[in-house]
C-alpha cells in the first residue's frame, strides 16, 4: 500500500481521495433512498451533471488563472434562449446550431476577457457586471415570452431521450457523451498543449510567467473566451434537456460551477487543478444535490443548507484524506 502510494503523483492522490468520497456519498444515499442505484437515478444525475460539466470546465480554466467567471449562469440563459428562439423560425440543423451556440458563448466570454485582461478590471467586478447585464438583456429581449418545446425542431427535442449505446440497463445518453467528450478534449489539452502550460504558469506566478516570455493577457483573455464557449455548449444542452426556456434559465449556475471546481481540487488561488478532478467534483455536487431532492426525511427548506454542509464536509474529508495519503507516501519512501 505504502510503496504503491509512493509512486503516485500528489495530484492523483487528490483524485483518488475525491473518488473515495464520492463512493461514500453514494453508499450512504443508497441506504437512505429506495431504488437509489437504479438506471433511472443514474441517468437523472448524469444528465443533470452534463449541463454543469462544461461550465465547470470553463470555470476551472478561469479559476486557474487567478480569476473567476460569475457570468456563466446568465450566459447559459442567453445561449439557451437565443438558440431556441432562432430554431423556432429557422432550423439550422445540428451542426450549425452547435456552432452558433459555441460562437455566441465565446463572443460573450470574449467581452469578459477583454475587460479583465486588457481593461484591467478585476474579474469579480467585471463578471458580476456582465452577470447582471447578460440577464437584463435576456429579460428585455424575451419580452416575457417563453421558448416552448413545440416551437423547436424535432431533432433537438429528441436529444434528451437519445442514447448512444447502453450497458445493460444503463442508457448512455448523447448529452452525457457530449459533455464527457468536451471534458476529455480539455483534459488532454490541459496536459499537453503549450497554451495550457502558459495557463498554469500565469495562475501560479503571473510575474514569472511574463518573464518567461508568456503573453499573460492573451492567456487570461483566452480562458474567459473558452469559459464563455463552454457555457454556450451548456446552454445548448440545457435547451435540449428542458425544451421550455424562460428568462431564469441557468440562474445560479455560476455558484454551482464554482462549487464543482473547488470540490474538484482546483486551487482557488490559481495555478493548479485537473479536469478529472473537475469531472469528479461536478458529479459529486450533482449527486448530493439530486439525492437530497429524493431524500424523504429532508424538507425542501433545508435542502440548500444541507447541500452547502455536505459540500463542505466532502471538501474536508477530501483534504483530510489527501493529507493522510501524502503522509503515508512520505513514510513509504523512508
Amino acid at each position: 500500500m505504502m510503496a504503491l502510494l509512493g509512486r503516485i503523483h500528489p495530484q492523483n492522490l487528490r483524485v483518488i481521495a475525491l473518488a473515495i468520497v464520492l463512493a461514500l456519498v453514494i453508499i450512504f444515499f443508497s441506504t437512505q433512498i429506495d431504488s437509489y442505484l437504479s438506471p433511472r437515478m443514474v441517468n437523472r444525475i448524469a444528465t443533470s451533471a452534463a449541463v454543469i460539466l462544461p461550465i465547470a470546465i470553463g470555470q476551472a480554466l478561469v479559476v486557474m488563472t487567478r480569476n473567476v467567471d460569475l457570468s456563466v449562469g446568465s450566459l447559459v440563459g442567453i445561449v439557451a434562449y437565443l438558440v431556441g428562439d432562432t430554431l423556432g423560425h429557422t432550423d439550422l440543423g445540428p451542426f450549425l446550431t452547435l456552432l452558433f451556440a459555441l460562437a455566441l458563448g465565446a463572443g460573450c466570454g470574449a467581452i469578459n476577457g477583454l475587460l479583465v485582461a486588457y481593461g484591467r478590471v478585476p474579474s469579480i467586478i467585471t463578471t458580476l457586471g456582465t452577470l447582471a447585464l447578460f440577464r437584463t438583456f435576456l429579460v428585455q429581449y424575451s419580452d416575457a415570452r417563453t421558448i416552448t418545446t413545440e416551437s423547436l425542431p424535432k431533432w433537438i427535442v429528441e436529444i434528451p431521450q437519445a442514447s448512444l449505446f447502453s450497458i445493460g440497463d444503463f442508457e448512455v445518453r448523447v448529452m452525457v457523451v457530449v459533455a464527457l467528450v468536451a471534458a476529455v478534449a480539455f483534459g488532454i489539452a490541459l496536459a499537453k498543449l503549450r497554451m495550457a502550460r502558459a495557463l498554469y504558469a500565469v495562475g501560479s506566478n503571473p510575474d514569472a510567467a511574463v518573464v518567461a516570455g508568456i503573453n499573460s493577457k492573451r492567456v487570461v483573455f483566452t480562458a474567459f473566451t473558452l469559459s464563455g464557449m463552454l457555457a454556450g455548449l451548456a446552454g445548448l444542452i440545457f435547451l435540449a434537456k428542458f425544451g421550455n426556456i424562460t428568462v431564469v434559465a441557468g440562474l445560479g449556475f455560476e455558484l454551482k460551477s464554482i462549487a464543482a471546481v473547488v470540490v474538484g481540487g482546483v486551487n482557488i488561488f490559481g495555478g493548479s487543478g485537473t479536469i478529472i478532478g473537475v469531472v469528479l467534483g461536478t458529479v459529486l455536487v450533482d449527486t448530493i444535490d439530486n439525492s437530497l431532492t429524493r431524500w424523504a426525511i429532508i424538507s425542501e427548506f433545508w435542502r440548500d443548507a444541507l447541500l452547502g454542509m455536505l459540500i463542505m464536509a466532502a471538501v474536508a474529508a477530501d483534504t483530510f484524506m489527501t493529507r493522510a495519503f501524502n503522509r503515508l507516501r512520505r513514510g513509504g519512501e523512508a
Partner: peptide, 28 residues
C-alpha cells in the same frame, strides 16, 4: 519573478523554451 511554486520542476524548467518540446499537433 523566478518560479511558479505550484508547478513541478520539469514544467518550470521548460517554461521559457517549451517550443522546443512540441511534437505533432503542437502537443508537448
Amino acid at each position: 519573478l523566478g518560479l511558479a511554486m505550484t508547478m513541478p520542476i520539469f514544467a518550470n524548467a521548460s517554461l521559457p523554451s517549451l517550443r522546443k518540446f512540441l511534437k505533432a499537433f503542437g502537443l508537448i
